[in-house]
């Protein structure tokens, strides 16, 4: 770190031998720091996976395992299909489906609503545009966690407990997406709408045929962020779903801890870890495979 060669290795290292040696040392340090960092991030989930391939008695005796055991099929099978593993009446597959519905429903709902609202704010001469803007953007201030109890009472009083509507709609009630699309629409050149108007395109046609197609990457990026956000919701699903067939997989994780807390018999660690791995796999895969969109969406949306 304390040399100048690392930034420009080719020119300098060929001239002076000692610097070349120094360069190596500095880049070894850099790589070691990055490897330690990567291991710090990786190990917990990796060990959850290796542990999930052992039977629960071994895990209870020896703790987390680093080797691959022979119980992979048993534990994952039980976590996915066995009813009552942790949650009495629901299996992993149902919870996975519920999570998928929540993740996709939330992301799609949020995108549709925010695109429409942002379109109205940016592209129309509106008398109360400023008022609408403030009404919408005040919601950025208060996360659901802060108004959790009254939100629960409201949704409950509408009879929306244990429904997908009750699960998804209150989460959509914030302006993150609208803010994001507003910023993006502002950056779209004015000439585009002028040209469209000269060609006789109305507002609907402009939105569907021009604005939505050019926003495609933006929509994909925000979809990933929103899907992960929806999938990972915990407190709200924990409150609003009491019927176990409506549990999301993240909600199901809570049942594991409750079983631990009771502590009557040896907990099914293997299955618990298997369920944890299943719960993180879909969002992790999406983030890793669509990494560039995801990073773009994250960095742009928070600006």
């Amino acid at each position: 770190m304390t040399d100048m060669t690392s930034e420009n290795p080719v020119i300098l290292s060929s001239k002076e031998k000692p610097k070349a040696k120094k360069l190596k040392l500095s880049s070894i340090i850099d790589h070691s720091i990055l490897i330690i960092g990567s291991l710090f991030m990786l190990m917990p989930v990796l060990m959850a996976f290796t542990t999930s391939t052992h039977d629960h008695v071994t895990i209870h005796k020896e703790g987390l395992m680093l080797s691959i055991g022979d119980q992979f099929a048993e534990n994952y099978g039980a976590a996915m299909f066995e009813k009552g593993g942790f949650t009495e009446t629901v299996d992993g597959l149902t919870m996975l489906m519920n999570s998928l519905i929540l993740g996709i429903g939330f992301a799609v709902g949020k995108i549709v609503i925010s695109v429409l609202a942002a379109y109205a704010i940016v592209y129309f001469r509106l008398k109360f545009a400023t008022l609408a803007f403030w009404i919408i953007f005040t919601t950025l201030l208060l996360p659901l966690e802060v108004r959790i109890l009254p939100s629960y009472e409201v949704v409950h009083s509408f009879g929306l407990s244990n429904t997908y509507t009750g699960l998804i709609l209150p989460l959509i009630a914030s302006a993150t997406g609208t803010f994001y699309f507003r910023q993006f629409f502002m950056s779209v050149p004015d000439e585009l709408v002028e040209a469209a108007k000269i060609d006789g395109a109305g507002p609907f046609k402009f939105l569907i045929d021009i604005l939505v197609p050019i926003s495609k990457t933006m929509v994909a990026a925000i979809f990933i962020i929103m899907f992960v956000f929806g999938w990972n919701q915990y407190l709200w699903p924990a409150l609003i779903t009491t019927d176990e067939t409506m549990f999301t997989i993240i909600r199901g994780i809570r049942q594991i801890i409750l079983a631990y807390a009771e502590g009557n018999n040896i907990p099914e660690h293997g299955q618990a870890m298997a369920l944890a791995v299943i719960a993180v796999l879909p969002p992790v895969l999406i983030v890793v495979f669509f990494q560039s969109w995801f990073v773009k969406g994250l960095v742009e949306s928070e600006k």
Binding site: L34, G37, S38, M41, V45, V228, W231, N232, Y234, I250, I253, A279, V280, P283, V284, I286, V287, V288, Q291, V295, L298
Partner: peptide, 8 residues
């Protein structure tokens, strides 16, 4: 270093 973002 970034994938843990997706862990709930």
């Amino acid at each position: 270093l970034m994938w843990v973002y997706a862990v709930a």
